[in-house]
Each structure stands twice: as structure tokens, then as C-alpha cells.
Amino acid sequence: MSGRTPVVELLRQQQGTATAGERKVCRSLLADYPLAGLEPVARLAARAGVSAPTVLRLVGKLGFVGYPEFQQALKDELGERLSSPLDMYAKTAGRVGDHALDRSVEAFTQGIRSSLGAAPAAEVDAAVALLADARRPVTTIGGRFSGILAQYLAGHLRELRPRTSHVPDGGGDRAAALLDMGRRDVVVAFDYRRYEKATIRFGDLAKEQGVALILFTDPWLSPLASSADIVLPASVQAPSPFDSLVPALALVEAVVAALVDELGDEPRKRLARYDDLAEDVAE
């Protein structure tokens, strides 16, 4: 991944201080990211219901010298977004004397630091508020690899609060999980580069039923971001051709830590009961 902050993150940061017209442009870009930004400036302005100068003002505030530079950044991001392990192989191959342990220290340290440092506190707080509400059932879901993170979060949540479930891969389980979802439900979805259609479809269907949707994703954002209420991106920087989930796991751990802070002593009896039951079933 390049050293430049992804355009999508710049847009999210800008929304808090932008004018009303500029916020319309931000929403239009985020709703169909990054394709909306690859349209001519006049077409993007029409899509957002603003003037072309409003679009250009926003582009300048994002740090770009003109619309062509903005579009080139989007094209560069699109290439990174679609990169596969095969594409990344030559870029991450070790050099003579370059041990994988050294590369790992650098990649993981930078990935965790950048992800947690850039994590929007307001989004984390909003996610924690939803997860702390024991009246709201929580369902976690992920993909081929990211499902590990979904299971991991669900495991912690089950010990801290009631009504938590994880939906594994499989159409039948996912269909059954959607049956009774409504406005009180919370879905936590994990979806990273080479985004998985099944996870995106589940999230979209759940959102249509009124759930609150929290999305953990990468800096380029899963297509599910347009439906999500809360988006928590993390770096996928890795020492190998395969995207790393280490920064994403660190972000999950940070959310769990914030949830424990929010709940205070409330889960103590539940944790004690869990330990007693765990001993009983092990006998």
C-alpha cells in the first residue's frame, strides 16, 4: 500500500468540517466509491446536486492540485483494491539478507500503529454503544479468512453480554440467521480486499430489515461500506503476498477493550458463571 492516505479516508475526515454542498459531494462519492470519482467533474456535480466549483473546492481541501490529480489517486487506489496475492508476489518477495522476521516486525508495527492511530474515535464509540446494549442481539459474520475475526469477536462478546451469535459460511445458516432480524439487531461484518459477495449480500439483506450494521474492512472499503452505519478500516500491510489481518485483529482487541471500559463491573457475574459452567462441562 502506498504511503498516501486513501481518498476514502480523506473524504470521511472532511465530512465534519465541509460545507453543506461539499458534504453532498462526499456522500455521492462514498455511495459509489471509487467509481463516482472517476466521472467527469460536471457529471459528479450533477449526481451530488451541486455546482462544479463546489466539487473542485472539495478536491482542493482534500489536498489535490486539481481534479485530474484527484482522479489519478482514485485510479491508483483501484489498482491496489483489486490486487491479488499473485499481483503482490513480486512486490513482497524477500531480498538477500532480508529475513521474514525483520519484514514482519516492520509491517505489523506500522500496520497496527497506522490503523489504531487513524481509527475514528467517534465510530469506535458508536460501535461500543451498540455492542454494550444487552437488549440488542449481535450477529457476527465474515468470509474465508476474515471469518476468523468474526468468530474471535463473537467469542469475547458471548462472555461479556447475552444474545451473541456467529454465522459460519453456508447459505442455509445465513438464511436462517436473517429470518428474524429486525431493528433491534446488530450485525458486525468483516470484509477485506477481494471482497466476498456472500458477506456483502448478507449485510445488505440485513440492512434492508433495519439492523444496525458495523463493518470492519480495509482502507479501500468493502462495497458494504455504503450500507454500513459504522465503518472501521484497518491496514492489510503484510510481509508476504497475502493481506495481513494483524492490524484488523488489533482493532478488534481495541474495541473489546473499549467495551469492557463501557460495561465496567457489569459482566463480572456473567464471567464468573461462565468459568463455573466451563469447569462443569469439562468434567
Rank of each mutant, 00 (worst) to 15 (best):
D191L: 01
G37Q: 05
H166N: 14
S51P: 01
W220C: 04
V281P: 02
L160E: 08
Q14L: 11
Y67K: 05
G171L: 11
P34A: 04
A248L: 02
L259E: 08
V256G: 03
L271Y: 06
P233Y: 10
S146M: 00
V138E: 00
L178M: 12
D180R: 14
V211C: 03
S83C: 08
Y67M: 00
G171T: 14
Q14D: 02
F64P: 10
T5Y: 01
I112H: 09
F108S: 07
R43Q: 15
E266I: 07
L263E: 04
V231Q: 06
A206M: 12
R158T: 13
R113W: 07
M181P: 06
F64G: 07
A73K: 02
D98T: 05
E266Y: 07
L101I: 10
T54S: 07
A127Q: 05
R103T: 04
R163M: 11
A282V: 05
G16C: 01
R184G: 15
T164P: 05
L86R: 12
E279D: 14
P168Y: 07
R268M: 09
T109V: 14
P219T: 05
E283N: 02
F70C: 08
R136C: 01
E266Q: 03
F108D: 08
V7R: 07
E106G: 00
R268L: 13
L205V: 15
V124I: 15
R27C: 00
E69A: 15
F108C: 00
Q71Y: 10
V7K: 04
D102I: 06
D98F: 01
